[in-house]
Structure formats: C-alpha cells, structure tokens
Design a protein around this nucleic acid. Structure first.
Lengths: 226, 226
DNA sequence: TCAAAAGTGTTAAGTTTACACCCATGA
DNA sequence: TCATGGGTGTAAACTTAACACTTTTGA
C-alpha cells in the first residue's frame, strides 16, 4: 500500500457553481435559481453542487449542469476557484466556478419548474447569495475576452443562424453596437462560417440566409477575430 | 448555533502550487524545487503547500510564496484549479495554482539552498511531477496575455530599469523579437513610464538612462499596450 | 581605435472605421 | 403600398511594421 503523507492535513468541502449563459431576444440571459431548498431558501443563486469523492472537478461541473438542464456536451470553461473563509456564512465551502454556453432552445421548461430556475436578463440580475455576483462578473469578463478570439459564441445559437442573429449575439456579449457592413465583411472572411441554401423567415418577411459554423474547417485554419 | 447542511458531504485536501517567474540575463526563469522531501523526493516540482483551516486560498498562496522566498507583497494571480482524481498518485489532493512575478534580485540565495530551489530557464524546464507542467504552460499563457494589456511586467524588474531591459523582458515574455524603435515609440507614449536622470553603466560603456513605472500616474489614465 | 550597446524618424502597408441606399416580402 | 429587416462597397483615418545610421565610452 502507498504510504500516506497528508493524513495530518485539514480537509475541506468543495463545490462547483455554474454560470449558465443563454441568448434570446437579442439579449444574454443567465439561468438562476430562486432557491426552494436550504440554505438561503428563497434567495437567488447560481446552480451548484458538491464535488463527489469519485469525480474530477470538471466532471462535477458537467454533472451539476446536467442535473439542472438534462444536457451533456455543453461548452464549459473554468472561471476560477473561490476560497474566502466566510464566503458561505454557514460552513466553509470552497468553490470552483464554471461558465456554460448553451442554446436556450435546448432547455426543457419542465426541468426549470422543478428546480425553480429562471432565465434572467444579464442587466436584470438580482442580488445573489455568497460571492455568486462576483463569479458572474468574472465569468462575463472571460466570456467577452474569449468570444473575441475563439469561436465559442456559436454555442449560444442554434446550429443554423442568420447573420443578424450572430451580430446581435456579439453586440450582447460586448455590450455595444457593431456596424452591420463591417461585421459582415469580417464574417465573410471566415470560411468556416458557411452560408447554407436555407432561409429563415421567422425574423423578417423577406427572409435571411441561414449560416452554420463548420468546426472541422475552423480547425484547419483556426483564425478568429470578431 | 447555525444549522449544518453539508455534514454528509465528502471533504478534500486542498493545496496551492506556485509558478514563480523571475527575469535575468534576458530570459524568463522559474523557481523550481529539486524535492528534498517526500513524496516524489528527488524529482522536480513547483513549490506548494496545503490550505490551512484558518486561511483563504489567496492567503495560502501568499504564505507558501513567503515560506520559499521570505517576501511579502509579491504580485500573484490565480492560474486555475486542478482537480483530476489521480493528479497526485498518492492521495487525492486538489490544487489551486498561482503564478507570481518577482524581481530575482530580491531573492535570498540562502533560502534557495534550504529548500533546494533553483532558477531554471523557461526553455530548460525539466519534467515536473503531477500536473505541474500543465500548470506552468497555462500560467505562461495567462502571463503573455495579461502582460500585453496590464502593466504587470514591471514586477519582474528592479524599480529602476533601462529601456533595453524592458524590451528584452517583453521579448522573453512573448517569445519574439521586437523592433527597438517601435518599442521605444510605444513606451514614450506611456506617461507613467518615467525617465529618471540616473544612468546605468552595467550594461554598456556608454550607459543608459534608467526609467521607472509610476503606478499612481498609471491609475489616473490606465492604458497599456505593449 | 574599435567593439558594443544606446539612442533616434520616416514611409509604406495594412487595418479599422464611418457611412446610405436598394431589395424582397407579408400584412 | 408600405413598413420591416436583409443585403451590399468605398474612401478616409488610423495603426502597425519595416528599416539604418550616429553617439558614447571603456578596454
């Protein structure tokens, strides 16, 4: 048996918290819980859960997301590790925060009801428990930086999307308007954003061409800047 | 007494590991341990330590750095939280990695001897234990990104520095050469990088003016791009 | 006297920004 | 027929990149 060196060291509760981004009606939203369980019942918080003995921290983040959404294969990335002594005023809990980018259409409203989860506009976020507001702020910073140089924004859209949808997504992420012609010029230079022959008529009478992100083509020549 | 909700949850060992950057002879170096203690005695690793009951994770990172260097007030930033199940093959330990930027001249060689610590050139890093090599790679990525847009590089230099030193620092961080005139043009536009009337003769016969970073001036107009 | 680092401006290339009108369609 | 979102090109401003010689001084 392997010798144990760490037996005198203290041990800690470790949790994960998920900042879940969704996009609709030209706005970024977060999936937040109006907690119907203790502690802090009745308050708003991120979805979270405890790290289990037999799972990695990345696996825990995926499991927690799955519990709330029923979805696997969602884009996730670590935000940071939060370890202030009193961040949870009950007992000490350390937390790794992750953000997730999902297509809001994939989300089953039944699961929302069960967990009392709600999509809240980014600029209408209520006060959250513990340090969750700070986690959200940092996650948004990371998203803004990363979305500019890596093609992660597509995770927030359906597989097929119009250029107007793509533009309004990036306007929402950056919090500023983008010139339509300049935006389309940049998109046109990215060969991995492919025009299909399908047309979406839901957003206008005339209809707009639907595009899709070709991940394989992106990896052949991975350049992205929006 | 506050009700306890988490008592059934598993607890974990939590450590911090420090990626300590230094700069001399125009090259970035890391302060690494040739371990004179178990586990993995004889192998190379980052400096680390366990999180204690009464300290935050940031405090733990500072304490661990202090134990190795005797220095407080060193620039540190979180790299990420590493939680693979078998990252430490002995017992499960989760680790928050931090990188630190220090002036190599502030480092007491006596402390180095005691811990068997060595400054190793970035491109001569030996294989490290556990996932420490991965931590180093991610820390370097963060440093490269952050050094370009925030004035953190000065932490690697003495208070007074020549423009040649500053340029070779940024060349080391980015891993590419920079045009001298373009570099100096950019520096000249940053009013918070102030020319002193002192001259350094250690690097050349002619001598070069010494500059300093004025943090207060920077915060009045915080723009940085190198 | 010469080797070695310090210091100094200009021009061309490339990138980014600003901007306005016609098109297709369903109500 | 008209209101609505879809689609398209050009020129000016700005930023970035390329480039070579003179100065100073200690050995």
């Amino acid at each position: 048996m392997m010798k144990k060196y760490y037996s005198n060291e203290h041990k800690f509760h470790v949790a994960v918290d998920s900042i879940i981004f969704g996009f609709y009606q030209s706005e970024l939203h977060l999936l937040l819980l109006k907690r119907n369980f203790e502690p802090a019942k009745g308050e708003w918080s991120l979805m979270g859960g405890f790290l289990q003995k037999d799972e990695s921290i990345d696996q825990a983040a995926k499991r927690v997301l799955f519990e709330l959404t029923g979805l696997n294969q969602v884009y996730m990335d670590q935000v940071g590790f939060f370890g202030e002594i009193d961040r949870d005023p009950g007992e000490r809990v350390l937390s790794a925060a992750y953000y997730a980018l999902m297509n809001i259409n994939d989300y089953d409203p039944e699961l929302a009801k069960k967990h009392n989860a709600h999509w809240i506009k980014l600029n209408e976020i209520p006060p959250l428990i513990f340090d969750h507001t700070k986690m959200v702020r940092i996650a948004l910073n990371i998203l803004q930086r990363k979305a500019a140089t890596e093609p992660i924004g597509f995770n927030l859209l359906s597989e097929l999307f119009t250029l107007s949808q793509l533009q309004s997504l990036y306007e929402a992420i950056y919090g500023e308007t983008i010139d339509k012609r300049n935006f389309r010029k940049r998109v046109a230079e990215m060969d991995f954003i492919e025009k299909t022959d399908k047309i979406d008529k839901s957003g206008s009478k005339r209809g707009a061409y639907l595009y899709k992100f070709n991940n394989k083509a992106y990896h052949k020549d991975p350049k992205f800047k929006l």
